[in-house]
Design a protein around this nucleic acid. Structure first.
Length: 288
DNA sequence: GATCCGTGGCT
DNA sequence: TAGCCAAGGAT
């Protein structure tokens, strides 16, 4: 238990965003789709794609019945398109192994493709009201600041951090679920990475980092992901051509979007290996 | 455990 | 402007 509980819950009650996957009528599938899309992608960009996705595929079985390429196409420009393949594969597994219903246990969830510790805990918690430690980047940052007195958490979750989160998780199931989403929301809206709004924070007077005078981060340098000229950028260019085409495209159309032949060939090979692209003829390619 | 995997808004 | 960052997972 923690003295943060009541102020955080009160703040969430008054300030929570009205997101579709949080509505009382949201299905577990809607929650699951949102969690896949929200992996490393901001809410604002997820909203329209999530809505269209649920309208087209209201159940896991609806998605599983389609070619994987349709999932990749509908994923649009959310980024990390392998998530679309994994969501499709997870839907197929749900049909095959769980009667078409999103499972409610952490163990069943984490066995699904594309579901790791965070997503399994999130679906069990937000779709089914179970009690799990939910550790995402927002929660980790809020706890690092309020409880540990440092600006940013370590690069990976360690045992002590998990125990700390477990120690402040309310014992009551529904309260634990609300607590988890409330801490996440606080991290997303107030206790942000670059410019926290301490003046609007409901637990500012309880925050260890603030009490210490907002000491600057002094841990190992946080990795900066490069972008320009990377294979990822090249893959994105190539896949965008196929996503925007309604029939197989000739190799020359792929050549046109990336000048470096060696890198282009390598990127295309990796897309084929990932099953994000299929070769449909001697010199033509398409979504699977 | 380090690295790879997209995309776009923000400051 | 050029980083910085966003509800991670797989290998």
């Amino acid at each position: 238990m923690t003295e943060l509980l009541d102020p955080v819950l009160d703040w969430y009650d008054a300030n929570a965003r009205d997101l579709p996957w949080r509505s009382a009528s949201a299905t577990p599938w809607s929650v699951m789709v949102s969690e896949f899309m929200l992996q490393q992608t901001p809410v604002s960009r997820v909203l329209p794609v999530h809505e269209a996705w649920l309208e087209r595929w209201p159940t896991p079985a609806d998605l599983a019945a389609e070619p994987t390429g349709e999932a990749v196409r509908a994923w649009g420009r959310l980024g990390y398109p392998r998530r679309a393949l994994r969501l499709h594969a997870a839907a197929a597994a749900i049909v095959a192994d769980h009667g078409g219903e999103v499972p409610d246990s952490y163990d069943d969830l984490i066995a699904l493709p594309g579901v790791g510790d965070y997503t399994a805990a999130a679906i069990a918690t937000f779709a089914y009201g179970k009690r799990h430690v939910v550790l995402d980047t927002n929660v980790r940052r809020v706890f690092a600041r309020t409880l540990s007195g440092v600006e940013f958490p370590s690069q990976s979750v360690n045992k002590a951090e998990r125990e700390l989160a477990a120690n402040v998780l309310p014992h009551d199931e529904p309260t634990a679920a609300t607590w988890s989403v409330a801490v996440m929301e606080l991290g997303a809206l107030i206790c942000t990475a670059a410019k926290p709004s301490c003046s609007r924070c409901p637990v500012a007077d309880l925050c260890a980092w603030r009490a210490a005078g907002h000491p600057a981060y002094d841990g190992p340098p946080r990795k900066v992901q490069t972008w320009a000229g990377t294979d990822r950028q090249c893959r994105g260019r190539l896949l965008a051509v196929l996503r925007d085409a309604d029939s197989p495209v000739h190799r020359t159309r792929l050549d046109a979007v990336w000048p470096d032949e060696t890198q282009r060939d390598r990127a295309l090979a990796s897309l084929l290996k990932d099953a994000l692209v299929v070769k449909t003829g001697p010199e033509t390619y398409a979504l699977p």
